[in-house]
């Protein structure tokens, strides 16, 4: 049985931990602190948590201001509203001036579920990735989330960390896991095809790889949790080894992880790359599992895609 943890809960807990040793940390939220879990920080350090109300743009302007005066700012809301509505502020002020603002959004992707398309950000990676100076991270499990938040706190500059509403299965163990920035870890070696995944899709890719192994298909799996900068070495090596690459993301196939991989390989080592993701469509209401099936992003869909493209 897999154990599941909510990444946003870990985020809130990690903020509290960091806040104990660093008075310089400010946390901001836009009326979603219960959902993003920054409320945990608020409960401990009410003087350093600022609920800016339903005003994502203003929140990021305040975050920029606080960063200029020396604070490390974690600003949170749903991915849709934070990276979407406030994009130009992030681009022109936070990123351009290289300000120390960590944009940690929750509720990215279709796994938002019932709220429907207006709350399902499937374009946030594209939006953030296109901005110079911006680092883009997307953890695959709870442990990795904690490590990334720590890394964000100790690293200067703008950063986008993408979290989800749903709980994620635990994939990594304390003993064997270490977070190395800009690295895509090989979670499983294989020679026929490489699955490069991020976020929730990493678990699906691993599941698919094990099932395919039963059918004598050897699958390599990469956790591309650092989407920008990207681990070009690991990806080019995979391209060399397996010739076929399938990217898996809970995001549009336009501008996200898949696009980043294609951009890299087309410049340096062109091989066939299939992108699994939302095919230029909006999401809709439904249960997360139903939506993963509907948009052909389930474990079974990965298996199917591998088989179709190996023939």
């Amino acid at each position: 049985m897999k154990k599941y943890l909510a990444l946003r809960e870990i985020y809130g807990q990690k903020l509290v931990e960091l806040g104990k040793n660093d008075e310089n940390i400010f946390v901001m939220d836009a009326d979603l602190s219960g959902s993003t879990r920054t409320v945990l920080f608020k409960n401990q350090f009410p003087d350093r948590h600022f609920n800016m109300g339903i005003a994502e743009c203003n929140m990021l302007l305040f975050a920029a201001g606080a960063a200029i005066s020396g604070k490390t700012v974690f600003a949170s809301s749903f991915a849709m509203f934070e990276t979407g509505r406030a994009w130009e502020i992030i681009r022109n002020t936070i990123a351009h001036d290289n300000l120390n603002v960590k944009i940690v959004s929750t509720h990215a992707g279709i796994s938002v579920g019932e709220d429907g398309y207006s709350h399902q950000a499937n374009e946030d990676i594209a939006l953030m990735r296109a901005i110079p100076n911006m680092q883009v991270l997307c953890p695959a499990d709870a442990l990795e989330t904690g490590a990334m938040i720590e890394y964000a706190a100790e690293t200067k500059g703008p950063m986008y960390i993408r979290l989800s509403r749903e709980t994620f299965p635990v994939l990594f163990q304390e003993e064997s896991y270490s977070f190395t920035p800009n690295q895509a870890k090989v979670l499983k070696d294989g020679k026929d095809v490489t699955l490069i995944a991020c976020g929730r899709m990493v678990d699906f890719a691993l599941e698919a790889s094990h099932k395919l192994e039963d059918e004598k298909i050897s699958v390599r799996v990469l956790n591309a949790s650092s989407i920008k900068p990207m681990d070009s070495e690991a990806i080019i090596e995979s391209a060399r080894k397996t010739k076929l690459i399938i990217t898996c993301e809970e995001h549009s196939i336009i501008g996200g992880l898949g696009s980043a991989v294609i951009e890299l390989l087309s410049d340096s080592y062109p091989v066939k790359v299939i992108r699994m993701g939302l095919k230029d469509v909006f999401g809709q209401s439904g249960k997360p599992q139903e939506l993963f099936k509907f948009y052909e992003l389930s474990t079974e869909d990965i298996i199917k895609t591998v088989k179709e493209n190996l023939q």
Binding site: G116, Y117, S118, H119, Q284, S285, K287
Partner: peptide, 28 residues
């Protein structure tokens, strides 16, 4: 309401339900 395939999306969807003038859900 809120179920997969329904016209009654979690937030009003002008493309799915006649009578909705514009899709809303993002406040303001």
């Amino acid at each position: 309401l809120r179920k997969l395939g329904s016209r009654l999306q979690g937030h009003p969807d002008a493309l799915k339900l006649p009578g909705i003038e514009v899709s809303t859900g993002s406040l303001g």
